[in-house]
Structures are given as C-alpha cells and as structure tokens.
Computed example of a mutant assay.
Amino acid sequence: MTQLQERTGVATLGGNPITLLGPEIKVGDQAPNFTVNKDLMTEVSLSDYDGKVKLISVVPSLDTGTCDAQTRRFNVEAANLGDDVVILTISVDLPFAQSRFCSIAGIDKVVALSDYKNKAFGQAYGVLIKEIQLDQRAIFVLDANNTVRYVEYLKEMSAHPNYDAALEALKELV
C-alpha cells in the first residue's frame, strides 16, 4: 500500500492543527478521478459528470451548521446555473444521513455524494483529515474537461468558504 502524503500546518479544527492526507490540488491540474457513493450500493465517479462544469463542495458533515449553510447556499445558486453545470457536495456522511438531510432541507439541485466507504475522494484531493477521518472543507471548480480552475482549502474547518469567488470562477466557465 502506498503511503499517503501528509500535509501539516495547513489547516486547523477549532484552532488545533490537523493533518491532511493526500496531495494539494492546484489550479491548472487535471482533476484526479475518484469513486464515491450516490447511495449505499450505487457508486459514481468523476467521469459520470464528463462534459459538465463542476463545483465540488466538500464538507466534513452535513449535520453541522457551517456545512448545512454551505450546502443550502450552493443549492440556491444551482437553480440559476443551467444544465451544463453540476454541483456535487461530498462528505463522509453515510448515504442514509445525506438523503435524510437533503429531504428535510429541501436540497434538490445539489448532488450529495458520500466518501464514507474508502475515502477515495479525500485521499485524491488532499482533504482527508488523518486524526478524525472526515474530509476537510474545500471547494474545487472543474471545467468540462476536468481541469481544475479554482481551489479553496479552508484553513479553519469551521470557517465558510468564499462563496462569491467560487461562484464567479464557476460562472466564467459557463
């Protein structure tokens, strides 16, 4: 088994340092492929969204205030983006919990995907938190050819991303 790159000193949880596993993705990189769960038995990968501009909103858990707000904000924005764009929210929450959250919160434009099974997304995008096995909050915008056009790794897990900058990067590609 290959040893994952460990990145320290780049993020905190409640002000306490955490270790992120995996590489730092940068603007201009080809987005790594990944496999996550759409529900308990159905897996999807990045290639399932080929030809679409993608905003990937990474949250630690939908059951927290910041993650809830982030997902609701992108759901509202998704209604105005057209069919050539998809917003994916990825967390390590079980698909059951994601489905429950989306149903209660009225999330119907954002696609909730679970990284619970093998944490392939977290490892490929450098957001897997070694100490607690959740994915660190981050935003990635990919063009239709899966080239990374915008990246924001949050330095503090409880902080909100720069919604306006992420949405501007997304709209430039549409």
Rank of each mutant, 00 (worst) to 15 (best):
N33D: 14
T147P: 01
E172H: 10
L13T: 10
S45A: 09
A97P: 00
G106A: 11
I87Y: 12
A138Y: 04
A165G: 08
D164V: 11
E77N: 08
S99E: 14
Q136I: 00
I56K: 05
R149P: 01
V10T: 13
N16T: 13
I132F: 05
A120H: 10
Q136C: 14
Q123T: 10
V127D: 13
R7Q: 15
A166P: 09
C102F: 09
L134G: 03
P95C: 07
D164R: 11
P32F: 15
I18V: 15
V127A: 11
S114N: 07
L167P: 02
V44H: 10
L170Q: 07
D50E: 15
V111P: 00
R100N: 03
P60H: 04
D115T: 01
Q70D: 04
F140R: 03
F121M: 03
L113K: 03
R7G: 14
V44A: 04
K117Q: 09
K155M: 06
L128A: 12
V141E: 09
S61D: 06
L88P: 05
D68H: 10
I107V: 15
Y153F: 02
I18L: 10
E172G: 04
I104H: 12
Q30Y: 15
V44T: 12
V10G: 09
D115H: 06
A112E: 01
S158W: 04
V141D: 13
F34Y: 13
P161C: 07
I107E: 03
G9S: 12
S61Q: 07
P17N: 15
N80W: 08
I87V: 13
Y116I: 06
L88H: 09
A138R: 12
I18M: 11
A166N: 08
V53Q: 10
A120L: 06
